[in-house]
Nucleic acid binder design. Structure first.
Lengths: 212, 212
DNA sequence: ACGGTAACGGACGCCCCCGTCCGCTTAGGT
DNA sequence: ACCTAAGCGGACGGGGGCGTCCGTTACCGT
């Protein structure tokens, strides 16, 4: 008689839950993860308590919100890996992921931060990195990717891409596009390119404004 | 009888002021501009009130602290401009500014944020940008810099460089070095390089955690 | 030595954010 | 129609950061 859990929410609760997710998606996407929970609640037209009932902590809300983007990310790398030309596939992956990140500030933060407790995002990052590693190996073998490319360079590019800020999403996307084109040209194998300084092992940084 | 201002501080006040600046330099440099004022005061061994007496607002403290780095920045661009080979000078400027930013997180934030009221930093940025513009013009003329390079690409690189985060300064500097080498190779003129997507007009973003 | 005043710092008010509690509302089964 | 419990939201407590006030301390000129 204790564990009588009804896996079916009441209709109004379902409604609220969906509106909360929608509000969170919009706000996180536009303004990043620093948006106060109250603001999400306000935008969703519910009280703070309702928000916290559906998502007991901010982390959980974040995890739920970015499930979609994680799928998009996965789709991008899968598409890139399926490309018969590994170099072309790699370029596509870099371009599209950069654009995805440019379009969604919150996702970028979640993806590149060691968000404790958001295992899904961490797993998604892991998957992406591994898949790109394989793609890079093949692109190198085909002679299109410079041989001194390392996987950390991808993290480097993602972090750098994150640094690109602008007032409007459109501007950010434009800048990000130019940026990714630039680094892709830098990654392309050439007859005699100057050697690069050694790569650094980059680990996800702790998130910004989050309680322990 | 009202405006009897002694332009000479008492010895202990001078001492405290210097210790505050030192503490702020260390903390801002390592942890960025989000460090609480109390923390600066604690590290300087003074009370909060003393800190606020010397620097009535956080912005003023920031402005004072980064006067040095601004000079360093200026020195870097001057050195680059003085180089007889404009391309070599430009490369030097990019490398050194990236490294400077990688070494000092707070300065990066101040430099790339539209920190309202910190006119000095804004002026320093303006100076840097103008000087590099001239350098870029000459490097292009010499045929070493790709012709579709625009000044906003420099801002782009600086912002991107800012995005590179790491737990230790050493790692950040290493990563930043590799990054700047990469973009420099991308900027180098080549017989037939693929065209780049259009550049975006990048304006400094508002600072993160600052009262209006 | 001593007095006056510049300088100090603990304590305070204010605001914003996270997460919780409890009395009220309303869905939905009978 | 009614009743019960799922669901709701305003109000609350806790924490932390910025900037300020005022009683106390200690520098420095005489």
């Amino acid at each position: 008689m204790t564990d009588r859990l009804p896996h079916t929410l009441r209709s109004d609760a379902m409604d609220n839950r969906e509106r909360i997710l929608e509000a969170a998606r919009a706000l996180f996407s536009a303004d990043g993860l620093d948006v106060p929970m109250r603001e999400v609640a306000r935008r969703a037209g519910v009280g703070p308590a309702t928000l916290y009932r559906h998502f007991p902590t901010k982390r959980m809300l974040v995890a739920e919100v970015f499930a979609d983007q994680l799928h998009a990310c996965r789709a991008i790398v899968d598409e890139g890996c399926a490309d018969p030309d590994p170099w072309h596939g790699l370029c596509l992956v870099i371009e599209k992921i950069c654009e995805l990140h440019a379009r969604d500030r919150g996702f970028t933060e979640a993806f590149l931060s060691a968000y404790p407790g958001v295992k899904d995002v961490a797993a998604g990052r892991e998957y992406t990195v591994r898949a790109v590693a394989e793609l890079a190996r093949r692109a190198k073998e085909a002679g299109h990717l410079r041989s001194d490319f390392v996987l950390d360079d991808l993290i480097l590019v993602l972090m750098a891409n994150k640094g690109i800020q602008a007032t409007s999403t459109a501007t950010r996307v434009k800048a990000s596009r130019r940026f990714s084109a630039l680094v892709i040209q830098a990654f392309e194998a050439r007859p005699r390119h100057a050697p690069l300084p050694p790569a650094a092992r980059l680990a996800p940084a702790p998130p910004h404004g989050l309680s322990r």
